[in-house]
């Protein structure tokens, strides 16, 4: 006789008593997320940056291809809110563009890699046996490849990928390397889910395998996938910055936060704003995602530390 207390269930239990309002788990999760102030702040910052990257162009009358010969390498001024580069390009315009590229890369890589890992991991778990062994072997071989070399070869090479814009090329390469860890997680999680009695029950009812995967497995690994999505976005944004910073990621004329930061390293002392402004934006971006991720994890995880927070609250109230 063990007491397995699911706090989510407990919340409901309190309600079951008096009225018949069925609250979906998603609503409870949403509520828990909204209760986490850090996470909500993260969400707002991220949304603000997202809007900035789309509509930020309206904040400046300049665009990133126009030189302002009167203001070359100028610090922030009313005319150029964030200053200009040594070529006389408005930094605000560049940053709007760079942020957009970074977010775009993050969203695509995060989203698509979650999809790939879900499909790959579920397939491994579901078929098991030889299929699983082979796919696992491929997976481990891919993990063994130092990602960086492949990034470098692919982005510098003159192969068939050359015609792609450099940011898209980077997306393809990052995608190639970002899904393996999650695929392994999805595999082990689905394998344990397949051992659950409700999956067995469905099997013994004669429900076809395809339906079991779709109805029982996929929704139950959902929380892992959502978490991995936000983590994947952060990872991709960071990777882009790192690679572009040392000059093997995105290449001009495409602009990204990494390119902007990397370009400015040579003149940090003479044009500090050119370095610090894009760096700050990158921090806000990755930081807000990390804050959200934290809240999401708490919201999904019934045994999370949010109990700790509730405790301090009641303790204060008691005083």
């Amino acid at each position: 006789m063990t007491n397995i207390i699911d706090p989510i269930a407990e919340i409901d239990e309190a309600r079951v008593g008096d009225q018949d309002v069925v609250i979906g788990k998603s609503r409870i999760i949403f509520r828990r997320f909204m209760r986490n102030r850090t996470a909500v702040a993260g969400l707002f910052i991220f949304l603000a940056l997202f809007l900035f990257s789309i509509f930020g162009g309206f904040l400046t009358s300049w665009d990133k291809d126009t030189l302002d010969p009167l203001n070359i390498g100028m610090p922030p001024s009313p005319d150029h809110l964030l200053g200009t580069t040594q070529a006389g390009i408005d930094l605000m315009a560049l940053i709007v563009d760079g942020t957009r590229t970074s977010i775009l890369i993050g969203l695509i890589v995060g989203g698509v890699s979650v999809l790939i890992s879900a499909v790959y991991g579920c397939t491994m778990a579901f078929f098991g046996g030889k299929v699983d062994a082979t796919m696992l072997f491929i997976l481990e071989a891919l993990i063994m490849m130092p990602a960086i070399l492949v990034v470098a070869v692919a982005t510098s090479g003159s192969g068939g990928l050359k015609d792609l814009p450099s940011w898209l090329l980077l997306v393809v390469v990052l995608l190639f390397f970002s899904w393996m860890g999650t695929a392994r997680l999805v595999r082990s999680l689905s394998m344990s889910l397949m051992q659950r009695d409700y999956v067995k029950a469905a099997k013994y009812m004669g429900v076809p395998s395809r339906r079991i995967v779709w109805r029982h497995l996929v929704p139950n690994i959902g929380s892992l996938l959502v978490l991995d999505f936000t983590r994947g976005i952060t990872g991709a944004i960071l990777a882009e910055v790192a690679f572009s910073f040392i000059g093997i990621g995105i290449k001009l004329p495409d602009v990204s936060l990494g390119v902007l930061i990397g370009q400015a390293t040579g003149q940090v002392s003479s044009f500090p704003w050119m370095f610090w402004v894009p760096l700050t934006v990158m921090f806000l971006l990755t930081g807000s995602l990390a804050m959200m991720n934290d809240g999401l994890r708490d919201a999904f995880d019934p045994s999370s530390s949010s109990i700790g927070r509730a405790k301090t609250k009641t303790a204060k109230a008691a005083k």
Partner: peptide, 22 residues
């Protein structure tokens, strides 16, 4: 075996995209 495979794959990737003649 894995090392052999990854290295071989790397070689093909390199040989088809790196052109020293350029």
């Amino acid at each position: 075996i894995m090392i052999f495979l990854t290295t071989s794959a790397g070689y093909f990737l390199a040989v088809s995209s790196l052109k020293p003649a350029v």
